[in-house]
Amino acid sequence: MLITFQIQRYDPEKDASPHFEDYEIELEPESRVLDGLVRIKTYVDGSLAFRKSCAHGICGSDAMLIDGEERLACKTLLRDLGAKPGGRIRIEPLKGLPLQRDLMVDQEKFFDAYRSVKPYLINDEPPGPKERIQSPAEREAIDEPTKCILCGSCYSACPVIREKNPEFLGPAAVLNASRFVFDSRDRGLPERLPALDRPDGIWACESKFRCTQVCPRGIKVTKSINLTKARIETLRSIKKKAMGDL
């Protein structure tokens, strides 16, 4: 069927500001939006710039706004959008991160936030000669956050970052902190507090659930953030109590 992709274009070497261009292409209802972009790049205009790699929703390269919602272009089929012959699909880059070119945004700030929460196992106790023991239930406690592919959709959708506080760490960074905070093998919460326990850290989150709604991996992001808030509060009250006991 014939579909029009309405794509935001911006070339920093030529354009003062972004504008939209229309591309009419022939696609199937089962085609991915990414297939359409590749078709345009191959046969219509090779200068169209976007990121892509795995093409099946695992590498996190191609998050963008598709009809106004954060989605992975490779995981969004035309039929999911209810596209009809002659229909239009609007495609824009993610929000909240500096625009680079066409559908590409600068991800450095997003990854800086991720790195700031020390997203690695912290535990100085010697592990012994084999694996550390972890029960299936303990493993299950971190299952959701381990699915994150760092695509940036939640960061773009977050109303706090968009409207109030662009310095908020963002949902993905907090989620990835929770990946370790709730790992039975980790001992690193105190070391992560300087990044998390501050106004631009976890407390900027207002539980608006947009992250959870857009996450292409179906992660309950807000829930993980709230559990982490509760864990930090517990740690604080334990500390307070210990101080009071002195």
Binding site: R132, S135, F180, R185
Partner: peptide, 9 residues
């Protein structure tokens, strides 16, 4: 595993 990889158990 010791580096933190969350293997199924």
């Amino acid at each position: 595993e010791n580096m933190g990889l969350p293997f199924s158990r």
